[in-house]
Amino acid sequence: MAKKNVILLLLISGVVSLFVMSCAPEKREEATDLLTDTMITEDVGITDEAVGEMISSVPNPVEMSALLQKSDVVYSQDLLNPDSNIDNYNTNFERSLNLGVYGTDLVYMNIYDRTVSTLAYLRNVKDLADDLRIGQFFDYETLNRLSESSRNVDSVLYITNRGFDNMTRYLIDQNRSSIAILVAYGTWIESLYISTNVQTKPPNKDLIYQRIGEQKIVLDNLLLLLSNFRNDPNIDELFMDLMDLKKEFDNVSITYVYKEPKMKEVDGSIVVVDKSRSEVNINQEIVDGIARQVNYIRNKIIK
């Protein structure tokens, strides 16, 4: 009798497993390149610590999107990478870059309270991350549930950003820094693409242009980072594209006046009083030049 029950149980388990497997989302194609296994940091003469230190200087897209929203810039869905484009990304190289692109789009949509429309983008982030074997950092179910209400924007942004941070650290720890760098590259280019293509108007236009000009500092860091990975022809091409972008950013000048900062205690915490200042010299013509090159790079990434 007991033996019969065991056989029955096994049969039921088998049927249930088959049912569950048949209901699972369609499996995406395997990557056609070996990027994850061929680019290890030991080969490129840069320590994991240094990679982590430099990647952390690539701004989180929350900052740029929040500035746009605060400056009353109108939301533009047309600027985002269409969610259907995901089917075009068949290599780890393309998937890494576009994970950064879709991640930035997701942040942009959330900052503008477009939480309900984010589902397709959320799915894309999860799918690309799964393809790259880093899907464990994106809790799709929780994010999906939270996205049902715009009251949860902060939680969605927190979970998304923390996921990207954890993913970056994991990739670096696993000697897969090139993937982390490509995600950061995609993130930064998409953020710059959105900010140089939105419709801006005075008086906040100048503030946004200044922020665009300040990306010169980030560009220098990215170039330094990529220069260590140029033995990969794909990364070398990205590096050369950034060198062309650098020619446009060379027209931006940033001047600094540094003063001695002071610390004071306010309500049990430290508040810094700093009279230093920076001035970014940038104009419409320079922004247009930057936008042209950014559009070129971004269109190559998302094609």
């Binding site: 915490s269 508040v271 230093s276 920076s278 970014v280």
Partner: peptide, 23 residues
């Protein structure tokens, strides 16, 4: 700024920094 004051031996929970020079 730092979250530790050597003179008093106190730790502070956060630093607030209104940035006036980008970089």
């Amino acid at each position: 700024a730092t979250t530790y004051d050597v003179d008093s031996g106190r730790h502070f929970p956060y630093i607030e920094y209104p940035v006036s020079a980008s970089g």
